[in-house]
Design a protein around this nucleic acid. Structure first.
Lengths: 314, 314
DNA sequence: AACTGTTACGCGTGACGTAATGATG
DNA sequence: CATCATTACGTCACGCGTAACAGTT
C-alpha cells in the first residue's frame, strides 16, 4: 500500500470518478492512476469503484467506507505537515479563513487587526463565498477555518462552534412610514417592497420562516449577497431592507435609519467550522479566541477530537 | 513522505527509542530505519527524536504530537485492511479478544458458544492477561476487543463501553461461622483470613476501598488472579474468599457455600474496550451485542467516532 | 469521432541491504 | 569492548511517463 494510491483514489472520487481529470489535477498520468488504483483494490481484495466496461460509474459499498477512511488518513498527513511548520516557524505561516461577506465586512475587521498586530509574520488569507462553498473549502483543506451563519446542518466532517448570536434590523430611508410603526410587525413589513439577503446567505431561512409562520409572503424585490448592496438600494428608495443588526452603523450610514427587529425573527448564530481532527497552528487558536473569547484553546481542542460533550453554550 | 517512514518512527518510539530493536521487529535493517526517520524529520522540518551524540535519548515536543498523529494514520491503514477483509470474506476472519480470567471463565462461555454457532468461519482468539496488558494489546492492534472490569481509567486511545454490573459474594467451606453472620458485615469478614484477587484484577480496588472506608485491614493471606484458585484454597480451609458472584455456582461448587456481599462492596462494571476510531468487522459488532444486548451497532459506532454523548447508561 | 480507461514497455529514482565508520558507556 | 547510530555504496524494484490499444457514447 502506498500514500499515492490513497491520494489517487481520493482525487478520483472527488472529481466525479474521472481518472483523466484526477490525473490532470495531480499533475500525473492517467495510466499511473489507473494502475495504482487497481493495485490498491487488489491489495485490499475489494473493488472501490464500479466499472461498466471501461468507465467508472459508481463507488462500491466498501468503496464508500474505504474512501472515508482514506480521507481521515490524508487529513492526518496534512496535520503532520502542520506540526512541522508550527515548530519550525512558530510565528510565520498562513491562516486561511473562508467566510461570508457579512462576517468579513462587519464582524472580522477588528479581530483581524488585533491578530495581525500579534502575528505580523502570519499571512492571512480571506476567501469569500457562500456557506456551502465555505464548508467545502474547509473540508477540502483549502481553508483552515470557516466562519458563517447557519453554516449548513452539522456536516460530519466539520466541527461547528457557536460564536455569537445576532439579530436583524429593518432599514429604510429617513421619513419612511415603516419607521413609525410601533411596535414593528411582520405585517407592516409585508406591506412594502423588501430588499434582503440571497437565500443562500446569512440566515435568510430565518427570515422566510418568520413570514411563513404568519402566512405572509413579503414582496422581495431584490436579493443580494451582502448588506452593502442592500443598503445601497434601500437608500435609493427601492424598498425597505432587512439586514444583520451589525451591518447598520448609525454614524456611517447617514442616509438610512434602522429599527430593531429582534422580536420578529429568530436570532442567528455565527459559527466557526473546523475540519474534524484537524491539527491547528497555535495562532489559529489565538485567532479563534480573539473572535470568540469563550472558545478557549482546550475547549476547541476537545471539540476537535470529536468530544460532543463540549458544546460551549453560546 | 512515506508510509514506511511513519511505521519506522512509530516502532522506534514504541521500542524505547531503540532503532536496532525496531529494525529487528520490522525485519529490516538499522540503517534503513535511521535514514528514513531522518528523511521524515527533514521533510517535516522538525526533529522527532532527541539525539545525544549518536543515541536517541528522548522524544521532542513536536515529536510527541507527530507520533500521536502517526498512530492515527497507521490505525487508519489497519482499518482499510479490515474493510477489505470484511467485504472479500464477510463470514470468515479472526476476532481477537483480550480478557481476564474471570470473564473468560464465567461470563464469556455462553457468548462464545452462540458466536461460534453463528459464525463458524471466524477464528476466535482469546488472549488472557491483566487489565493493563489487555488494554495495551488493543491499543497496539494485537486484539480487537478488551473485556475487563475497571479496565484502567479511561485511556484516551480506547473507548470503554459499560456492559454489565456485578457484585461480590463471600465463600467459605460448609459450616464456617461466617456463614451464620446475619447480616454479613465487613467487620465479620475482617476477623478471618481472607483469600481474594490480586491487586491488578477484578476490581480488587473496590474491595480495598470498602475496608479502608471502615478503617479495617483484612487479613489477606493469599491473592490469586482467578476465582478458581481462590475457591480451591477456600475449600482447603485456608480462609474465606471474596469473589465475583458469577464465579460461584451452587450446583458445581459443592464443597463451598456463598453469602451475597453486594451491600458491602461497591458494584463493579464489566466494560468492553475498543480502539478509538477502529473499524470493526460486522461479526465484531454481533459479538458485542451478544455479550451486551444493549450495545447495538449504531450505538457502538457512534461511540467509536468519539461521540461522548453516547454513554449507554448501564 | 471524441473521450476515457487499460495494457505494454522502458526509464530513473529511491528504498533497501551490506559493509564500514564513528560515538558512547 | 560491546552497543548502537550514521555514512557509503551497490543493487533491485517500483512508480512514472509515453505509446499503443480497447471500450463507450
Amino acid at each position: 500500500m502506498n500514500l499515492q494510491q490513497l491520494r489517487y483514489a481520493h482525487e478520483v472520487a472527488k472529481r466525479g470518478l474521472n481518472i483523466t481529470e484526477a490525473a490532470a489535477a495531480l499533475y500525473t498520468s492517467q495510466p499511473g492512476i489507473s494502475k495504482q488504483i487497481r493495485l490498491l483494490e487488489e491489495e485490499l481484495g475489494v473493488d472501490i469503484f464500479v466499472r461498466q466496461g471501461r468507465r467508472l460509474t459508481d463507488i462500491t459499498a466498501p468503496g464508500r467506507q474505504i474512501l472515508d477512511i482514506i480521507e481521515d488518513v490524508l487529513g492526518g498527513l496534512a496535520n503532520l505537515k502542520q506540526v512541522g511548520e508550527e515548530y519550525s516557524q512558530a510565528d510565520s505561516g498562513t491562516l486561511t479563513i473562508a467566510t461570508t461577506h457579512t462576517q468579513a465586512r462587519y464582524a472580522l475587521p477588528p479581530v483581524i487587526r488585533a491578530f495581525m498586530a500579534r502575528y505580523p509574520g502570519v499571512r492571512l488569507e480571506l476567501h469569500q463565498g457562500n456557506p456551502t462553498q465555505i464548508c467545502d473549502w474547509v473540508i477540502a483543506g483549502k481553508a483552515d477555518l470557516a466562519i458563517a451563519t447557519e453554516a449548513i446542518a452539522e456536516q460530519h466532517e466539520l466541527v461547528m462552534l457557536p460564536c455569537q448570536q445576532w439579530n436583524r434590523c429593518v432599514i429604510a430611508p429617513p421619513g419612511h412610514p415603516i419607521l413609525e410603526e410601533r411596535p414593528l410587525t411582520l405585517e407592516a413589513i409585508a406591506r412594502y417592497p423588501v430588499v434582503t439577503y440571497d437565500s443562500a446567505f446569512s440566515g435568510r431561512s430565518q427570515i422566510n420562516k418568520a413570514f411563513a409562520a404568519r402566512d405572509l409572503s413579503p414582496n422581495v424585490v431584490l436579493t443580494a449577497i451582502d448588506a452593502d448592496i442592500i443598503k445601497t438600494y434601500v437608500s435609493l428608495g427601492l424598498g425597505i431592507g432587512i439586514v444583520a443588526a451589525m451591518a447598520y452603523d448609525a454614524s456611517a450610514d447617514t442616509g438610512l435609519r434602522a429599527v430593531d427587529a429582534s422580536h420578529l425573527f429568530e436570532s442567528s448564530m455565527t459559527r466557526i467550522g473546523i475540519r474534524r481532527n484537524a491539527w491547528l497552528r497555535e495562532y489559529a487558536y489565538v485567532f479563534i479566541e480573539l473572535f470568540a473569547p469563550h472558545l478557549a484553546r482546550p475547549l476547541v481542542q476537545a471539540a476537535l477530537q470529536g468530544d460532543s460533550r463540549v458544546d460551549p453554550g453560546l
